[in-house]
Design a binder for these strands. Structure first.
Lengths: 214, 214
DNA sequence: GTCTATAAAAGGATAGAC
DNA sequence: GTCTATCCTTTTATAGAC
């Protein structure tokens, strides 16, 4: 199955066939169109224009608009988990770990892709119940779970004092967003800059540690 | 202009004309349809079916789908600000004030209306830039500003110690959401209960005060 | 002001040739 | 497997009668 996502999976076991290349091109084009316009407003015509080829090929691969949508979400889920999993917490102070996790979390969330995905998933969650859970698990849930494990070790080694590491992890990740995420989602000018994101992350780290330090 | 929003403004200066009643009925029906399906997927046919009357009347009043959309957003903005403005902070402890503000904030955000509005505004923010800013100002911004003023007084009377009351207010309001808001937006089962919201608010208050108390 | 009927356009889906 | 051409449904928008 991973082989069908062409270009995403790292280990390329066999050289992609003509069909797989076509499929990947369609998914790539569709990702741009869907993330920009949302599911309902996106048209398959736009996708075909951008990817080349024809509508019939698209239908052959994905069955229709909904199948294409599912393929996009699945691919985005893979892309989302990766950067967070690449982080290492070994021999780092809580300041560094929290700042790194926070920055990584925000980079994903505030990117054009992250914002588009968030908009699209929330907008279509009612129509496609499974997809919401899928993205939530790969994104916020995965980040919180991972951070909670780290926080728990810090509690056990006596560095931090937290009544509930799991809750604390979620609180931290929410604080990191400040109001930047909502502002970006709502397209409120001026759009947050990278520097502003940094300031926001540092502020959240400071606030969190003020209350959590033993 | 407020008179045209029929049913929202409290002071009824004149009895609503037939046209105004019709207009209000259309807005009410459209609110339900748009918040449920989103702008792109909502059809004016659904609105007309629910409101009664005809498409021509709708076009006469609002000019089309976009005009109707703007009217809905404007009305929702009025409805959103009201409950937060009704809160009083006089002679209350920070625990009580924070809990009340947090609960009020969450009640709005987690209601079907709040979630629908959030989904719709973020989905359409690119197409209607003014509306995003409008809703942001009436909602998260208004709440944070108001809370910041209260926190600042507590700092000045020596009850709390905060380096930046404004930032602290935003941090608190984000923490209050926990991951409940995202879970609800993404329709992740099981949907948060009222009791869970309470627990989440209390947790945020405790965490906040642990770090903020002088 | 409000309704019925209709025009006009767009987009999703498919049949059949290569 | 892929492309060309076409069908059919849905939806916005308006013209004209009451």
């Amino acid at each position: 199955m991973t082989s069908k996502l062409g270009g995403v999976s790292s280990g390329a076991a066999h050289k992609p066939s003509r069909g797989e290349i076509r499929r990947a091109a369609i998914v790539a084009a569709a990702t741009d169109v869907f993330l920009e316009h949302g599911f309902a407003a996106a048209t398959l015509d736009d996708v075909v224009r951008r990817a080349g080829g024809s509508r019939a090929t698209l239908y052959g691969h994905f069955g229709g608009k909904e199948g294409l949508f599912a393929a996009i979400i699945a691919q985005q889920c893979e892309l989302i988990v990766a950067p967070l999993q690449a982080l290492s917490e070994e021999d780092r102070t809580p300041e560094k770990v929290l700042a790194d996790v926070g920055r990584c979390f925000m980079d994903i969330l505030m990117s054009a892709r992250g914002l588009g995905l968030y908009r699209m998933v929330s907008a279509e969650a009612a129509r496609f119940p499974a997809l919401g859970a899928q993205v939530f698990a790969c994104g916020p849930k995965a980040a919180a779970d991972r951070l909670a494990v780290y926080l728990q070790t810090q509690v056990e080694t006596g560095v931090l004092a937290l009544p509930d590491a799991d809750l604390a992890a979620r609180h931290f990740l929410e604080m990191v967003k400040g109001d930047l995420h909502t502002r970006a989602l709502f397209n409120v000018a001026p759009m947050p800059t990278s520097a502003e994101i940094d300031t926001c992350v540092k502020g959240a780290v400071a606030t969190f540690l003020t209350g959590a330090r033993r």
